[in-house]
Design a protein around this nucleic acid. Sequence first.
DNA 1: TCCTTTCCAGACCAATTGGTCCGGTGGCTT
DNA 2: AAGCCACCGGACCAATTGGTCTGGAAAGGA
Lengths: 218, 218
Amino acid sequence: MTSITPAAPTGHRAAASEARKQRIRDAALALFSQFGLRGASLDAIADQAGVSKTNLLYYFPSKEKLYVAVLQQILDTWLEPIRAIDAEQSPETAIGDYIRIKVELSRDHVQASRLFCLEMIQGAPLLREDLQSKLRLLVEEKSRVIEGWIARGSLLPVDPHHLIYLLWGTTQHYADFAVQIEAISGKTLADPAFFEATVENITRIVLGGLLPRTNADG
Amino acid sequence: MTSITPAAPTGHRAAASEARKQRIRDAALALFSQFGLRGASLDAIADQAGVSKTNLLYYFPSKEKLYVAVLQQILDTWLEPIRAIDAEQSPETAIGDYIRIKVELSRDHVQASRLFCLEMIQGAPLLREDLQSKLRLLVEEKSRVIEGWIARGSLLPVDPHHLIYLLWGTTQHYADFAVQIEAISGKTLADPAFFEATVENITRIVLGGLLPRTNADG
DNA sequence: TCCTTTCCAGACCAATTGGTCCGGTGGCTT
DNA sequence: AAGCCACCGGACCAATTGGTCTGGAAAGGA
């Protein structure tokens, strides 16, 4: 048996298989994020992934399963920035880092951001449980961190929930409404200067409004 | 539909016709805003509007025409709040009013907000021209107003574009991500207390960061 | 070597899609 | 009264949809 495979490692098959699955997931993300679950067709996804529709359905038994697989893969990535908020940090560092990481996500994972947004708009039929359990707990936990800062006097009084929504909404906006932003300003987050200006301005507005003045005046 | 009204006034026909068109537009908005252009079917829209699909296609010759009609109807409403920003006002009043009106929009026109968002996510194939002309000019004009405030010293330095994006994104978020917000906090903008808290918190964060301290210091 | 398991694609299917055709109905003018 | 015409719906159509079936190629263990 002279196999002519060029230095193929063991599990060559499994590796190729996983690569194929990932190609399919990528194509699915691209199309789902643009047209939604109903709007994207399996034919189009298979076509973009470079596989036959039959082969797609071999790896993912149904359209919905594929959709969930894609969604599940991005959910954790999506909650990471807020998870990173730490009570030990100063609010300045924590919020500043959060904004930067979240804008980076909007720059590097536009499609994921949009798919997430689409799912929300649709009423999150497939994510509702995760939202009401995981995300809710997470926000509750971080709210307590923010309240701790306020109690310590290192942050001016503000409803933690609304602060989180503001941060989330603002940063998300740069991915979901990228077309509008580009139409207006001609800039994209891919432009490093524009990226920095974005982070800088959001940070200044938010922290400027919430950080207490060093000059204690009462 | 049998026997519309007993005592029909003159123009009964034209009025009924217009009412029908509006019913169709409403149904279309509901379904397009949830499933997108491709995801919503004419059958479903006609069904929800209480008319036959044939009748729908009598008033709107194609699916895309119907979509554009719906979109066009909400675009002006959508740009109204930013149009209202006036150089004569103080930034405090102007921005405060803007936030309130925009949150009202998110409360009273959830579907319109979402359809707008969907169109953006898709790349705004049918609105791109409007964006690059009308919206761009509008934002340019209002940016100059904001720059005027900054020059007068009644607003701290900030990039007007990013300020507008932040306001837009934050307020929009309460409509588009209403499901997520409800899953987390259990509240809706329909709850007057939550509505007021929303306006109040956004306003405080934004204006708190941008309004100069009364104590002139340089 | 043989044989089982994994992998893959073409033909095919029922349901749904956007849209057309045709035959009507009923209000309004003459 | 009569006829014109805006208005409306059922039947229908070709294309597309998500998904199945069948049959074969290609590993990989025995």
